[in-house]
């Protein structure tokens, strides 16, 4: 049994997103976080101070642990963003705005 079997899901063909450059399949209607979980990926950022890995925690947009850089824009909550074909997710380091430092 898996979740798709349980609800008799018949999704359309998977899309492809890129996680740190690696293709990962995403079912239509899944969030980026769901697609990564389905691929066994649980972490997609490192913390600002300790450099520790983090991924989705609350699953509903409240904890902001699931932040990552998506298509160049940092601090996106992957548990909320629908996966679109070609989306590029990159592991975010810290605040994700390193390019702005002066």
């Amino acid at each position: 049994m898996d979740p798709l079997d349980l609800v008799g899901a018949e999704p359309g063909p998977a899309r492809t997103i890129l996680f740190d450059g690696r293709p990962v399949p995403a079912l239509p209607g899944q969030t980026l976080a769901a697609a990564l979980w389905a691929d066994g990926v649980l972490a997609w950022r490192t913390t600002r101070t300790g450099g520790r890995p983090r991924g989705a925690f609350c699953g509903i947009g409240q904890c902001f642990d699931c932040l990552a850089t998506v298509n160049g824009r940092p601090n996106q909550r992957l548990c909320l963003l629908p996966a679109e074909h070609g989306d590029a997710v990159t592991t975010q380091e810290g605040h994700g705005h390193g390019d702005l430092a002066v």
């Binding site: 898996d2 979740p3 798709l4 609800v7 899901a9 079912l27 209607g29 899944q30 969030t31 976080a33 769901a34 697609a35 979980w37 389905a38 649980l42 972490a43 520790r52 890995p53 983090r54 991924g55 989705a56 925690f57 609350c58 699953g59 509903i60 904890c63 548990c79």
Partner: peptide, 23 residues
């Protein structure tokens, strides 16, 4: 509790209900 793979109970439920995935 900050290790990847530790998720909230409701979060596991929400990800399952909406995305049909498990952690």
């Amino acid at each position: 509790w900050t290790l990847p793979g530790v998720v909230t109970a409701g979060g596991a439920q929400a990800m399952l209900k909406s995305g049909l995935v498990l952690p």
